[in-house]
Protein backbone atom coordinates (compact mmCIF):
# COMPACT_ATOMS: atom_id res chain seq x y z
CA UNK A 1 0.00 0.00 0.00
CA UNK A 2 1.18 3.55 -0.75
CA UNK A 3 2.30 5.63 2.21
CA UNK A 4 -0.56 7.73 3.57
CA UNK A 5 -0.60 11.28 2.24
CA UNK A 6 -3.09 12.33 4.92
CA UNK A 7 -2.68 11.04 8.45
CA UNK A 8 -4.95 12.07 11.30
CA UNK A 9 -4.17 10.83 14.81
CA UNK A 10 -6.40 11.24 17.86
CA UNK A 11 -7.88 14.41 16.43
CA UNK A 12 -10.24 16.38 18.67
CA UNK A 13 -11.81 19.63 17.48
CA UNK A 14 -14.14 22.01 19.30
CA UNK A 15 -16.39 24.41 17.43
CA UNK A 16 -18.68 26.83 19.25
CA UNK A 17 -17.65 25.19 22.54
CA UNK A 18 -18.90 21.76 21.48
CA UNK A 19 -16.80 18.81 20.38
CA UNK A 20 -17.25 18.64 16.62
CA UNK A 21 -14.76 15.75 16.33
CA UNK A 22 -13.57 13.35 18.99
CA UNK A 23 -10.66 10.91 18.96
CA UNK A 24 -10.52 10.65 15.19
CA UNK A 25 -7.67 8.58 13.66
CA UNK A 26 -7.43 7.76 9.96
CA UNK A 27 -4.99 7.53 7.08
CA UNK A 28 -5.67 8.02 3.35
CA UNK A 29 -3.08 6.43 1.02
CA UNK A 30 -1.68 8.53 -1.85
CA UNK A 31 -3.48 8.29 -5.19
CA UNK A 32 -6.87 7.49 -3.66
CA UNK A 33 -10.20 9.20 -4.16
CA UNK A 34 -11.66 9.26 -0.67
CA UNK A 35 -15.34 9.91 0.01
CA UNK A 36 -16.12 11.75 3.24
CA UNK A 37 -19.68 10.84 4.16
CA UNK A 38 -21.97 11.52 7.12
CA UNK A 39 -25.13 13.33 8.15
CA UNK A 40 -25.26 17.09 8.75
CA UNK A 41 -23.25 18.00 11.83
CA UNK A 42 -21.16 14.81 11.64
CA UNK A 43 -17.94 16.84 11.57
CA UNK A 44 -17.12 16.55 7.85
CA UNK A 45 -16.35 20.23 7.28
CA UNK A 46 -14.38 20.42 10.52
CA UNK A 47 -12.25 17.45 9.47
CA UNK A 48 -11.61 19.04 6.06
CA UNK A 49 -10.68 22.42 7.55
CA UNK A 50 -8.26 20.66 9.91
CA UNK A 51 -6.79 18.63 7.01
CA UNK A 52 -6.02 21.75 4.97
CA UNK A 53 -4.67 23.64 7.99
CA UNK A 54 -7.41 26.28 8.23
CA UNK A 55 -8.27 25.07 11.74
CA UNK A 56 -5.63 24.03 14.25
CA UNK A 57 -6.15 20.69 16.05
CA UNK A 58 -7.27 21.06 19.64
CA UNK A 59 -6.17 17.51 20.43
CA UNK A 60 -4.10 15.08 18.37
CA UNK A 61 -2.42 15.83 15.08
CA UNK A 62 -2.93 16.15 11.31
CA UNK A 63 -0.12 15.39 8.85
CA UNK A 64 -0.24 16.01 5.08
CA UNK A 65 2.78 14.71 3.13
CA UNK A 66 2.79 17.19 0.26
CA UNK A 67 0.95 20.30 -0.87
CA UNK A 68 -2.77 20.72 -0.41
CA UNK A 69 -5.52 22.74 -2.10
CA UNK A 70 -9.06 23.28 -0.85
CA UNK A 71 -12.33 24.26 -2.51
CA UNK A 72 -15.00 25.35 -0.03
CA UNK A 73 -18.65 24.51 -0.61
CA UNK A 74 -19.68 28.05 -1.65
CA UNK A 75 -16.89 28.03 -4.31
CA UNK A 76 -15.62 31.54 -3.51
CA UNK A 77 -14.81 33.54 -6.67
CA UNK A 78 -14.40 37.28 -7.22
CA UNK A 79 -17.64 37.83 -9.11
CA UNK A 80 -16.51 41.04 -10.85
CA UNK A 81 -13.28 39.41 -12.16
CA UNK A 82 -13.37 37.92 -15.63
CA UNK A 83 -12.22 34.30 -15.99
CA UNK A 84 -8.93 35.52 -17.49
CA UNK A 85 -8.43 37.99 -14.59
CA UNK A 86 -9.20 35.20 -12.12
CA UNK A 87 -6.45 33.06 -13.70
CA UNK A 88 -4.03 36.03 -13.65
CA UNK A 89 -4.81 36.59 -9.98
CA UNK A 90 -4.09 32.91 -9.33
CA UNK A 91 -0.78 33.12 -11.18
CA UNK A 92 0.35 36.13 -9.13
CA UNK A 93 -0.66 34.72 -5.76
CA UNK A 94 0.78 31.20 -6.15
CA UNK A 95 4.35 30.01 -6.45
CA UNK A 96 3.35 26.82 -8.21
CA UNK A 97 0.93 27.63 -11.03
CA UNK A 98 0.00 25.69 -14.18
CA UNK A 99 -1.66 28.50 -16.15
CA UNK A 100 -1.48 26.71 -19.48
CA UNK A 101 -3.20 23.62 -18.13
CA UNK A 102 -5.90 25.81 -16.54
CA UNK A 103 -6.58 27.65 -19.83
CA UNK A 104 -6.68 24.38 -21.80
CA UNK A 105 -9.13 22.85 -19.35
CA UNK A 106 -11.50 25.86 -19.40
CA UNK A 107 -11.25 25.99 -23.21
CA UNK A 108 -12.15 22.32 -23.49
CA UNK A 109 -15.15 22.88 -21.21
CA UNK A 110 -16.28 25.91 -23.17
CA UNK A 111 -15.88 28.37 -20.27
CA UNK A 112 -15.35 31.81 -21.92
CA UNK A 113 -12.23 33.58 -20.67
CA UNK A 114 -13.79 37.03 -21.12
CA UNK A 115 -16.92 36.38 -19.05
CA UNK A 116 -17.25 37.71 -15.50
CA UNK A 117 -17.09 34.95 -12.90
CA UNK A 118 -20.39 36.13 -11.40
CA UNK A 119 -22.18 35.66 -14.74
CA UNK A 120 -21.11 32.03 -15.27
CA UNK A 121 -23.56 29.15 -14.78
CA UNK A 122 -23.35 27.12 -11.57
CA UNK A 123 -21.56 24.33 -13.40
CA UNK A 124 -19.05 26.73 -14.97
CA UNK A 125 -18.36 28.37 -11.59
CA UNK A 126 -17.73 24.93 -10.10
CA UNK A 127 -15.34 24.13 -12.97
CA UNK A 128 -13.53 27.47 -12.54
CA UNK A 129 -13.10 26.93 -8.77
CA UNK A 130 -11.86 23.37 -9.42
CA UNK A 131 -9.52 24.58 -12.18
CA UNK A 132 -7.98 27.21 -9.86
CA UNK A 133 -7.35 24.52 -7.23
CA UNK A 134 -5.83 22.11 -9.78
CA UNK A 135 -3.62 24.84 -11.30
CA UNK A 136 -1.79 24.96 -7.96
CA UNK A 137 -0.74 21.34 -8.69
CA UNK A 138 -1.56 20.05 -5.22
CA UNK A 139 -0.69 16.54 -4.02
CA UNK A 140 -3.92 16.47 -2.00
CA UNK A 141 -7.13 18.16 -3.14
CA UNK A 142 -9.88 18.64 -0.55
CA UNK A 143 -13.37 19.43 -1.85
CA UNK A 144 -16.34 20.31 0.37
CA UNK A 145 -19.53 19.15 -1.39
CA UNK A 146 -18.17 19.74 -4.91
CA UNK A 147 -21.33 18.39 -6.55
CA UNK A 148 -23.95 20.21 -4.45
CA UNK A 149 -26.37 22.36 -6.49
CA UNK A 150 -25.07 21.06 -9.83
CA UNK A 151 -27.24 19.48 -12.52
CA UNK A 152 -26.40 15.89 -13.59
CA UNK A 153 -24.39 16.99 -16.64
CA UNK A 154 -22.29 19.45 -14.61
CA UNK A 155 -21.74 16.76 -11.93
CA UNK A 156 -20.51 14.37 -14.61
CA UNK A 157 -18.18 17.05 -16.05
CA UNK A 158 -16.70 17.88 -12.63
CA UNK A 159 -16.05 14.19 -11.98
CA UNK A 160 -14.50 13.69 -15.44
CA UNK A 161 -12.09 16.55 -14.75
CA UNK A 162 -11.24 15.17 -11.34
CA UNK A 163 -10.76 11.54 -12.44
CA UNK A 164 -8.58 12.66 -15.36
CA UNK A 165 -6.30 14.52 -12.99
CA UNK A 166 -6.10 11.51 -10.66
CA UNK A 167 -5.11 9.30 -13.63
CA UNK A 168 -2.66 11.82 -15.07
CA UNK A 169 -0.60 12.60 -12.00
CA UNK A 170 -1.69 10.47 -9.06
CA UNK A 171 -3.53 13.28 -7.30
CA UNK A 172 -5.16 12.28 -4.00
CA UNK A 173 -8.69 13.57 -3.44
CA UNK A 174 -10.80 13.90 -0.29
CA UNK A 175 -14.35 14.98 -1.12
CA UNK A 176 -17.51 15.20 0.94
CA UNK A 177 -20.97 14.46 -0.37
CA UNK A 178 -24.49 13.79 0.82
CA UNK A 179 -25.35 11.71 -2.21
CA UNK A 180 -23.72 8.30 -2.01
CA UNK A 181 -24.81 7.44 -5.59
CA UNK A 182 -22.49 10.21 -6.87
CA UNK A 183 -19.53 8.48 -5.24
CA UNK A 184 -20.12 4.89 -6.31
CA UNK A 185 -18.06 4.88 -9.53
CA UNK A 186 -15.56 7.53 -8.56
CA UNK A 187 -14.37 6.93 -5.00
CA UNK A 188 -12.24 3.99 -3.86
CA UNK A 189 -11.85 4.93 -0.18
CA UNK A 190 -14.59 5.58 2.40
CA UNK A 191 -14.40 7.79 5.49
CA UNK A 192 -17.68 7.76 7.42
CA UNK A 193 -18.28 10.26 10.23
CA UNK A 194 -21.28 10.24 12.54
CA UNK A 195 -21.88 12.61 15.44
CA UNK A 196 -18.25 13.71 15.57
CA UNK A 197 -16.87 10.18 15.65
CA UNK A 198 -15.17 8.16 12.94
CA UNK A 199 -17.22 5.06 12.13
CA UNK A 200 -15.65 3.64 8.96
CA UNK A 201 -12.33 4.18 7.19
CA UNK A 202 -11.01 1.89 4.49
CA UNK A 203 -10.80 0.65 0.90
CA UNK A 204 -14.32 0.48 -0.55
CA UNK A 205 -13.80 -2.83 -2.41
CA UNK A 206 -12.43 -4.44 0.77
CA UNK A 207 -15.31 -3.05 2.84
CA UNK A 208 -17.94 -4.35 0.39
CA UNK A 209 -16.22 -7.75 0.18
CA UNK A 210 -16.11 -7.93 3.99
CA UNK A 211 -19.85 -7.41 4.53
CA UNK A 212 -23.04 -9.23 3.57
CA UNK A 213 -26.70 -8.37 3.41
CA UNK A 214 -28.54 -11.33 4.94
CA UNK A 215 -32.22 -11.91 4.56
CA UNK A 216 -34.11 -14.57 6.51
CA UNK A 217 -36.17 -15.50 9.57
CA UNK A 218 -36.09 -12.98 12.42
CA UNK A 219 -35.08 -14.69 15.63
CA UNK A 220 -32.24 -16.64 14.00
CA UNK A 221 -30.09 -13.52 14.02
CA UNK A 222 -28.40 -14.19 17.36
CA UNK A 223 -24.72 -14.92 17.19
CA UNK A 224 -24.29 -13.02 13.94
CA UNK A 225 -21.83 -10.12 13.77
CA UNK A 226 -24.55 -7.69 12.73
CA UNK A 227 -23.93 -4.01 12.09
CA UNK A 228 -27.63 -3.21 11.81
CA UNK A 229 -30.92 -5.01 11.29
CA UNK A 230 -34.38 -4.18 10.12
CA UNK A 231 -37.19 -6.53 11.09
CA UNK A 232 -40.59 -6.74 9.41
CA UNK A 233 -42.84 -9.31 11.09
CA UNK A 234 -40.99 -12.64 11.00
CA UNK A 235 -38.53 -11.47 8.38
CA UNK A 236 -35.21 -9.76 9.05
CA UNK A 237 -32.69 -8.03 6.81
CA UNK A 238 -29.24 -7.56 8.30
CA UNK A 239 -25.95 -5.97 7.37
CA UNK A 240 -23.28 -8.28 8.86
CA UNK A 241 -19.52 -8.49 8.84
CA UNK A 242 -18.18 -11.61 7.16
CA UNK A 243 -17.45 -13.00 3.74
CA UNK A 244 -19.70 -16.06 3.71
CA UNK A 245 -23.33 -16.73 4.64
CA UNK A 246 -23.48 -18.37 8.10
CA UNK A 247 -25.95 -21.09 7.05
CA UNK A 248 -28.55 -21.88 4.37
CA UNK A 249 -31.45 -20.32 6.26
CA UNK A 250 -30.08 -16.97 5.18
CA UNK A 251 -29.96 -15.69 1.65
CA UNK A 252 -26.84 -13.59 1.26
CA UNK A 253 -25.52 -11.00 -1.17
CA UNK A 254 -22.92 -8.25 -1.19
CA UNK A 255 -24.11 -4.83 -0.03
CA UNK A 256 -24.09 -1.80 -2.29
CA UNK A 257 -22.07 1.20 -1.09
CA UNK A 258 -25.35 2.89 -0.16
CA UNK A 259 -26.47 -0.09 1.96
CA UNK A 260 -23.10 -0.21 3.71
CA UNK A 261 -23.22 3.51 4.53
CA UNK A 262 -26.85 3.39 5.69
CA UNK A 263 -26.22 0.28 7.78
CA UNK A 264 -23.46 1.99 9.75
CA UNK A 265 -25.26 5.32 10.05
CA UNK A 266 -28.24 3.53 11.61
CA UNK A 267 -25.97 2.06 14.31
CA UNK A 268 -23.68 4.84 15.48
CA UNK A 269 -22.03 2.60 18.09
CA UNK A 270 -20.57 0.23 15.46
CA UNK A 271 -17.40 0.78 13.50
CA UNK A 272 -15.20 -0.69 10.77
CA UNK A 273 -11.72 0.67 11.26
CA UNK A 274 -8.27 -0.71 10.63
CA UNK A 275 -6.87 -2.46 13.70
CA UNK A 276 -4.28 -0.80 15.92
CA UNK A 277 -0.98 -0.30 14.11
CA UNK A 278 2.14 -1.64 15.82
CA UNK A 279 4.34 1.20 16.99
CA UNK A 280 8.09 0.75 16.91
CA UNK A 281 9.74 1.75 20.12
Amino acid sequence: MNAPILEVTGLGMRRRRRWALRDCSLAVPAGRVAALVGPNGAGKSTLMLAAVGLLAPERGSVTVRGSVAFVAQDKPLYESFTVAETLEFGRRTNLRWDGEGARDRLDALGVPLGARAGRLSGGQQAQLALTLALARMPDLLVLDEPLANLDPLARHDVMRTLMGEVAARGLTVLLSSHVVADLEETCDWLVLLNGGRLQVSGDIDDLLAGHLVLSGPAGDAEGLDAVSASVTGRHATLLVRGERAPDPRWSARRPTLDELVMGYLRSPATSALPGPVAVER
Binding site: M163, V166, C187
Partner: peptide
Protein backbone atom coordinates in the same frame (compact mmCIF):
# COMPACT_ATOMS: atom_id res chain seq x y z
CA UNK B 1 -7.20 3.78 -24.60
CA UNK B 2 -5.15 5.02 -21.65
CA UNK B 3 -6.71 5.07 -18.18
CA UNK B 4 -6.80 8.86 -18.42
CA UNK B 5 -8.70 8.81 -21.73
CA UNK B 6 -11.25 6.37 -20.33
CA UNK B 7 -11.89 8.21 -17.06
CA UNK B 8 -12.11 11.61 -18.74
CA UNK B 9 -14.97 10.21 -20.80
CA UNK B 10 -16.79 8.00 -18.27
CA UNK B 11 -16.00 9.81 -14.98
CA UNK B 12 -14.97 6.62 -13.19
CA UNK B 13 -12.08 5.88 -10.85
CA UNK B 14 -8.82 5.22 -12.76
CA UNK B 15 -8.16 2.12 -10.64
CA UNK B 16 -11.29 0.55 -12.17
CA UNK B 17 -9.74 0.82 -15.65
Amino acid sequence: PTAREVVEKLAINPNTV
